[in-house]
Amino acid sequence: MLVFITGATSGIGKSTAEIFAKNGYNLIITGRREERLSSFKKELETTYKIKVTTLCFDIRESAAVESAIASLSAENKNIDILVNNAGLAAGLSSIQDGSLSHWERMIDTNIKGFLYTTKAVSNLMIKNGKGHIINIGSIAGKEVYANGNVYCATKHAVDALNKGMRIDLLAHNIKVTAVNPGMVETEFSVVRFDGDEDRAKKVYMGMEPLKPEDIAETVFWVATRPAHVNINDILIMPTVQATATNVIRK
């Protein structure tokens, strides 16, 4: 079995790669940080005795996505599972004060990059007559919160695309699953606040958020259901979080 994971150098993507590797799956891992990819590949292959292929590219660049996936060997084009994990938030501002560069970064990554990767890999799956696409969404794709406008819009787009691709790929024996987390402590908030680690820490202050491995375990669970079972959509939250903004803090 072969699993293709985007954004695998940190957070949910990294934990997802680890759980599949631990269970004997071969991997194709992608990211923009080549040094991290190479180091992670070595670690996974040494620890779990599996095969790992790395692809270093920016999913926002359609030509780079196409070129990277086209470069795969015939064996590595037999992708069983695609985990669309790469995504980000940039900024937390009202619509009237929003940064155009933040908006473009989120739209280019969360929607366009997501689509570029899905198109390329789904066509390989269609040739193989089977596959499973697992998309990492967000509570932000289910509801909108103050100052989350464009980020929430991109995740609502992913939520709609989950449904659309499930319909389009039904005849090709390709499953589509959405895994939508609430608050997960990763580099997410550091990226959102342009590297401001002090501000990022405050997001999770006084509460116990989800961990990347919690989401990875969920991804692995949906991927290992029997062939006749598809988990369409999961919303997974920390116990102390009820909605995007209703959180109990100590």
Rank of each mutant, 00 (worst) to 15 (best):
M1V: 12
F4L: 15
G13A: 08
S15K: 15
S15W: 08
A17I: 04
A17V: 03
E18K: 15
Y25R: 03
L27A: 00
I29N: 00
I29L: 03
T30H: 01
G31K: 03
E34P: 05
E35H: 11
S38C: 09
S38N: 12
F40I: 12
K42Q: 13
E43C: 04
T47C: 02
T47R: 14
T53A: 11
T54W: 05
T54I: 15
C56P: 06
C56Y: 04
F57K: 02
R60P: 06
E61A: 11
A64H: 11
S67M: 10
E75A: 14
E75V: 14
N76M: 14
K77D: 08
D80V: 06
N84W: 01
G87L: 08
A89C: 12
A89G: 15
A90G: 08
L92R: 13
L92V: 10
S93G: 09
S94E: 12
G98H: 12
E104P: 06
I107N: 00
D108P: 02
K112L: 11
K119F: 11
A120C: 15
V121F: 09
M125E: 08
I126Y: 08
K130E: 11
H132P: 07
I134Q: 06
I134W: 06
I136F: 04
G137A: 00
A140Y: 10
N149G: 14
V150Q: 03
T154N: 02
D159H: 14
N162E: 10
G164S: 05
M165D: 05
R166E: 15
H172D: 15
V179Q: 02
N180C: 09
G182P: 02
M183L: 14
T186C: 06
F188N: 02
S189H: 12
S189Q: 15
S189P: 00
V190G: 06
V190F: 00
R192A: 14
D194H: 15
G195H: 03
A200H: 05
G206C: 03
K211T: 11
K211V: 07
P212Y: 08
I215V: 13
E217T: 10
T218H: 06
F220H: 12
A223R: 01
T224A: 09
T224H: 13
P226V: 10
H228Y: 13
V229G: 01
V229T: 10
V229R: 04
V229E: 00
N232Q: 13
M237A: 00
P238R: 00
Q241R: 00
Q241G: 03
A242L: 15
V247R: 09
